[in-house]
């Protein structure tokens, strides 16, 4: 199937700014679904609120554009009640880790079979450029005119510690790598997290003098390096890209099915 067959044409034009990284994430994601050959009817995309969250409207899957921060909680209800469905949950960094941080760690802890995609632009795009828990120290934002003093999360470390059984990181510069990680994440049984650094030229780039979209994207190649690469070994301060965790552990819905089996037996 062609990529355009996964899009809802009547939803276009999309609302993203020219040069926004979120479109690249959409592209990588649809390629992953296409290459895996998953039926559109088997996919539910659940998103929250934000520029990133609008992605769910553009795809021809079952789509649930929910509340800011709550996409994983909605997804948990969908998945547990109908485990045969594949759950894709793209989220902005604020969506996933500020207001939705609690749901994020608990979904990871349960190891429920959902794929979380953190579209990390280090800023609140939709509301006009306020700092996020992933902005990090010393950044400019509309709510940090004197620069941020808040520490940021490391999404990978957080997901690992919370119990996610598949954790990967890449960027919009590395779109084919993103497709590859997303394919693995989607096929992984359990809670998978793919963090994709995604540029917001409009609110982050401009304020923090990181240039326009092409410059920001090119910069992702400079500030990151593949896990196990010589580049990373020589420059440990760079941000690692790759698959950090890929392990098997009991999956929540399957464990619950065992409870049902047991409870039903007890009843007979």
């Amino acid at each position: 199937m062609a990529i355009k067959d996964y899009l809802r044409q009547r939803f276009f034009p999309h609302m993203w700014c020219p040069g926004c990284g979120h479109g690249t994430v959409l592209n990588s994601l649809l390629r992953a679904v296409e290459e895996l050959g998953i039926e559109k009817n088997d996919i539910v995309m659940t998103s929250g609120i934000g520029c990133s969250a609008r992605i769910s409207g553009y795809v021809d899957f079952h789509s649930l554009h929910s509340l800011h921060g709550r996409a994983l909680a909605f997804a948990t209800g969908v998945k547990l009640s109908q485990p045969k469905l594949k759950l894709l949950v793209p989220m902005g960094d604020g969506d996933a880790l500020a207001i939705g941080g609690n749901h994020f760690i608990h979904a990871a802890r349960r190891n429920i079979d959902i794929t979380a995609i953190v579209m990390n632009n280090k800023i609140y795009g939709m509301t006009g450029g306020q700092y996020s828990p992933l902005s990090g120290v010393g950044k400019k934002a509309t709510t940090a005119p004197y620069l941020t003093i808040d520490n940021d999360f490391d999404v990978v470390e957080l997901a690992k510690a919370a119990g996610a059984t598949f954790v990967a990181r890449t960027t919009t510069f590395h779109a084919t790598e993103a497709t590859d990680f997303l394919k693995k994440a989607i096929m992984h049984k359990g809670f998978s997290v793919v963090e994709i650094l995604s540029q917001c030229p409009t609110h982050y780039g401009r304020k923090n003098k990181e240039g326009d979209a092409p410059q920001m994207v090119a910069n992702y190649d400079k500030i990151t390096a593949r896990l196990g690469s010589k580049k990373l070994e020589e420059n440990p301060a760079l941000i690692g890209r790759g698959i950090f965790v890929d392990r098997q552990a009991p999956e929540y819905c399957e464990e619950y099915d065992k409870i049902i089996e047991y409870a039903m037996k007890g009843r007979k």
């Binding site: 909680a73 609690n102 749901h103």
Partner: peptide
């Protein structure tokens, strides 16, 4: 399912309702 809070509980039942 016992969720992490009441917000999540409410969201989860909405998600489940959508599967019928």
């Amino acid at each position: 399912i016992q969720m992490e809070d009441e917000i999540a509980s409410m969201c989860a039942i909405i998600g489940a309702s959508l599967t019928g």
